[in-house]
């Protein structure tokens, strides 16, 4: 339980940061809050030669509603920033709630949205709801920036589409017709527990008609996954309790959980069923209560 040796950089611009990253290639790591990275280094899972801290790089810490773009969230925004953002409260309360379900207060102050995404472990709490809301991520590299759909960005356990010399600058939740969204995290105690399953749902309702729906499952596959068959059961239909139950059952079949020290595969599947139902009900209810 001791940090291995590494070189430490504290650049002041993204450009400078990308240059240092470029020099080291895969041997360097971006350091944001360090709440994922430093434990991994202490446990001998990772031993990067260099850490490039984003601490002195200004910006990337606001949450703003930008007309034409949607809600733009800086990469260095902490989970507690998401919890306390009035922009999110007004537009996507479900994101604040997902952030609030993470870790404990100290870690929610230290961590960042980009760290949670780039770390890419299956139980991470922010990706499912962000994917359900069709979020995109913007990456800055030595020769400019590119934008990817978050759903395509996470490619495997601890694997993403980011290049070694790229830095995530922002996460954007685009303007959309979504009428309600919800995230349910199921962990094995009431705080400080990783998700055994996480389920996010976003719906576009017209009265009781489901015009569109996106269901994203966390912690039950190598990456957050869409429950597309479950979505199909609902899309274009008038919502009923039976249909919601059927969607839950479908999601339980679609997911690909493993058994580990926290839960068995069988239990995880059934929890996907239960929380898909609950997330859908909450997302739809929010819409109905407003109309």
């Amino acid at each position: 339980m001791h940090l291995p040796d590494f070189n430490y950089y504290q650049p002041e611009t993204l450009q400078e940061a990308c240059e240092i990253l470029g020099r080291y290639g895969a041997k360097a790591k971006v350091l944001a809050g360090g709440t994922d990275l430093l434990p991994k280094m202490k446990q001998d899972v990772l031993a990067p030669e260099a850490l490039v801290s984003l601490k002195m790089v200004s910006g990337m810490s606001d949450i703003e509603k930008v007309p034409g773009r949607g809600v733009v969230i800086g990469a260095k925004t902490s989970p507690n920033d998401l919890v306390n953002s009035s922009v999110l409260h007004e537009n996507f309360m479900s994101v604040s709630e997902a952030a609030h379900s993470m870790a404990n207060n100290q870690v929610r102050n230290m961590g960042t949205i980009a760290g949670n995404i780039v770390n890419a472990i299956p139980s991470a709490d922010l990706p499912p709801i962000l994917i359900a809301l069709s979020a995109t991520v913007t990456l800055v590299g030595p020769v400019g920036s590119r934008t990817l759909v978050l759903e395509d960005f996470i490619t495997g356990v601890s694997r993403t589409a980011i290049a070694p010399d790229e830095i995530m600058e922002e996460v954007v939740i685009p303007e959309q017709s979504t009428t309600g969204s919800a995230y349910f995290k199921f962990g094995l105690r009431h705080s400080g527990a990783l998700a055994v399953v996480g389920v996010a749902a976003a719906v576009t309702m017209q009265g009781s008609l489901v015009r569109d729906v996106r269901i994203v499952l966390g912690a039950v596959a190598p990456t957050p996954m869409r429950a597309k068959k479950a979505e199909e059961i609902l899309r274009g239909k008038n919502v009923t309790d039976d249909l919601i139950a059927e969607a839950g059952k479908s999601a339980a079949v679609e997911c690909k959980p493993i058994s580990d020290i926290r839960a068995s595969e069988e239990y995880r599947r059934d929890m996907v069923r239960v929380f898909t139902k609950r997330a859908l009900r909450k997302a739809i209810y929010l819409e109905q209560s407003e109309s």
């Binding site: 404990n104 094995l188 105690r189 009431h190 705080s191 400080g192 527990a193 990783l194 020290i261 926290r262």
Partner: peptide
């Protein structure tokens, strides 16, 4: 030991 830490050895928290 699979859970020699306070994350997976789950002692109750204030919320529990």
């Amino acid at each position: 030991i699979l859970n020699p830490n306070m994350s997976d050895y789950r002692m109750p928290t204030a919320l529990d």
